[in-house]
Design a protein around this nucleic acid. Structure first.
Lengths: 256, 256
DNA sequence: CGCGGCCGTCCCGCGTGGTGGGACACGTCT
DNA sequence: AGACGTGTCCCACCACGCGGGACGGCCGCG
């Protein structure tokens, strides 16, 4: 008899067909338009031949589109992505309030959810004179380095927070908080106030006030934030607005 | 010698692994949150066992999320969907102009692209007193029954238009144009004016004026539209605004 | 001009992993 | 209790994915 196979602790075994296909899909960055077979193989870590064949399979399945010899993400992926419930129900309910928030504060408004140790931006309403921010719709940023991330974590179960701490607090900017003790204490304060602040922790010259969108059980399902130039925006002025909008949104969602 | 295999006209052969996986992914509708294995099998037309295993594979690949015994579309699909170039470059460039268009007309503004014989909505900015419309971001509607669809088709190669005619003009509302001759004549008029109209053809009581977003080669890559209640909006008043915005957007995109 | 490097594409024998009918447990309604 | 729908798992069979390698085309460089 051969020895036991060790199913020890979620061995990735990332060599199934689907994992490879997803590796090809995620090889595309936000700003590149068409990739060749070789580039695909390089980014996905797959053999040339395999990457090429999988790309053709994905084209056949309608997930990728051919443009000459290159290949790019297909519109079907956008369609499917818009049906994802985690973002759709939240976004649809939030957009009107986000719009009001932008009009009242004249600043950029963000809506994000937590995924692992990072936040994923679901919607962004930009202000006319907004600074260049690192956030993008559908993009990720470390939760500990953003206002929305801290707002969500402050109202998340301990396991979730612990997972973020275990993953390590990522340093994004000069002032990003990376000390676990300091970070945990900040979360406690956010839990009392209902508002999280980001004072140039994710980008130079950018301030941000965020507040969690709470589900019926009191746990955060996302967060709203307002951010802008540090010399043109007073946190004390926008914080109550964000807090109010988040509370109203939470109540709206609870009403089904 | 065995007989020739006929590769006649794209034999679907939709029983490859990826086709099945995509069938599972597309089994999800816009408004349902979590599906069970049996429901998945029913909608995708796959055997129970197979649908269940593929769903688990998709969960393992991170494309689907488990919630108890049910399964739903995962956030990763949203992230990937936001990177699709066909919508991203167009949307990013269009949003500011769409915002101005809404402010100037106080009506709902649409941005869509063509896919086969249907339009896919890329972005929608709703007005405060907007009627309920059949359009959804990421949703599809027959191209011949919408203002944006007609605007795009009027500036598309003949093969594309022919494909739509061959597929058959779908009747959505009472007044949808389904006669091929009449439709072709309407496209010619749109080509002259630069603006397409939808007078209650896609929904009762709803008017719409649309104009194409043109690429450097003069072909439409999408369309903008303004729509609202037939008794509160004058087409003659909004048409020039839509036309202007579309021309400006086209020029912006051409400037790289 | 010849060369070498990089690219897209395809072939084909090997063997792994997908296949799906069926079995089983569980919950619910009649 | 019985009938039904459901989620989950098993397992022998064999199709299909695998990837090293080959081929031709394209470029830039010496």
């Amino acid at each position: 008899m051969v020895g036991h196979v060790f199913y020890s602790e979620a061995m990735p075994s990332d060599d199934t067909f689907l994992h490879r296909a997803v590796a090809v899909l995620t090889a595309f960055r936000a700003d590149d338009d068409g990739l060749g077979a070789a580039e695909l193989a390089r980014r996905s870590g797959l053999p040339r031949s395999t990457a090429h064949r999988i790309a053709l399979d994905l084209v056949d399945a309608g997930l990728l589109e051919r443009q000459g010899t290159r290949v790019r993400l297909g519109l079907k992926l956008f369609e499917i992505g818009q049906r994802v419930p985690r973002q759709r129900v939240l976004r649809d309910a939030a957009v009107p309030y986000m719009s009001d928030l932008r009009e009242a504060t004249r600043q950029t408004v963000h809506l994000a959810v937590l995924e692992g140790a990072e936040v994923v931006y679901v919607e962004i309403l930009g202000a006319s004179d907004a600074p260049r921010m690192p956030s993008q719709v559908g993009g990720r940023l470390p939760a500990n380095a953003t206002g929305v991330g801290k707002a969500i974590l402050a109202f998340s179960p301990p396991e979730v927070v612990q997972a973020v701490l275990d993953a390590g607090l990522v340093k994004v900017g000069e002032r990003t908080v990376v000390a676990p003790g300091l970070f945990t204490r900040e979360l406690a304060k956010i839990r009392e106030e209902g508002v999280a602040y980001d004072r140039e922790e994710s980008g130079n010259g950018i301030l941000c006030a965020a507040s969690p969108v709470l589900g019926p059980d009191g746990e955060a399902i996302g967060a709203l934030s307002v951010s802008g130039w540090s010399n043109r925006m007073r946190l004390a002025a926008v914080a109550p607005a964000v807090h109010t909008a988040a509370l109203t949104l939470s109540r709206t969602l609870a009403r089904r």
